[in-house]
Simulated scan of single mutants.
Amino acid sequence: MTRETGHKLVASNKKARHDYTVLKTYEAGLVLAGTEVKSLRAGYASLVDAFAGEHEGELLLYNLHIAEYGFGSWTNHAPRRTRKLLLHKIEIDRILDKLRDPGNTLVPLSLYFQDGWAKVELALARGNREYDKRQVMAKRDAEREISRELGRHLKGHRRQ
């Protein structure tokens, strides 16, 4: 059997980019049980409410929901169990150093398979305030309107 290649997205956390300002991203592996991998390959995962934190010098992923495997038996996993993140010790130390700054947190952005291995993209992030979110939305709406008008102008259409 040949090894799987490429990038296959399983789940993404779109709300995280809205709620947080991403300072830096990291790619980490996950320690998974066999039925978790099968369930992930079927696409049954959710990153809503998931976050990463430190426990005894290691990084763990909390509240990641991976649905139970339909054909599993008594060996099935708990859907919201805590999962260990696989990173180099130097990277873990750097992340923990930055997490000690007030307001910083570690949130998962996406869960995917890279060349057959389950990976999670983590973001070192700082929470947005409500007015920051409104400013970003207003800027995005203004840019969209400008590009729309430019397209109309280039096509020769006039606005009525």
Results as ranks from 00 to 15, higher is better:
residue 2 T to D: 14
residue 3 R to A: 09
residue 4 E to S: 15
residue 8 K to Q: 10
residue 9 L to Q: 07
residue 10 V to Q: 03
residue 10 V to E: 04
residue 12 S to W: 09
residue 12 S to Q: 12
residue 12 S to M: 11
residue 15 K to A: 08
residue 16 A to F: 03
residue 17 R to L: 10
residue 18 H to I: 05
residue 20 Y to N: 15
residue 21 T to D: 13
residue 22 V to M: 07
residue 25 T to F: 02
residue 26 Y to N: 06
residue 27 E to C: 06
residue 27 E to F: 04
residue 27 E to D: 10
residue 29 G to F: 07
residue 32 L to T: 09
residue 33 A to W: 08
residue 36 E to M: 10
residue 38 K to S: 11
residue 39 S to W: 07
residue 40 L to P: 08
residue 41 R to S: 11
residue 47 L to C: 13
residue 48 V to S: 15
residue 49 D to C: 12
residue 54 E to T: 08
residue 56 E to W: 07
residue 57 G to A: 02
residue 59 L to H: 00
residue 60 L to Y: 11
residue 62 Y to M: 09
residue 67 A to T: 00
residue 69 Y to V: 05
residue 70 G to K: 13
residue 73 S to D: 08
residue 74 W to S: 13
residue 78 A to H: 15
residue 83 R to H: 10
residue 84 K to Q: 13
residue 85 L to G: 12
residue 86 L to I: 12
residue 87 L to M: 11
residue 96 L to V: 15
residue 102 P to V: 06
residue 102 P to C: 01
residue 103 G to N: 02
residue 104 N to W: 01
residue 104 N to M: 04
residue 106 L to N: 06
residue 111 L to K: 01
residue 112 Y to L: 03
residue 119 K to D: 06
residue 120 V to S: 02
residue 123 A to V: 01
residue 126 R to E: 06
residue 130 E to F: 01
residue 135 Q to N: 14
residue 141 D to T: 05
residue 146 I to W: 15
residue 150 L to S: 08
residue 150 L to W: 08
residue 154 L to E: 12
residue 159 R to E: 13
residue 159 R to C: 05
residue 160 Q to R: 08
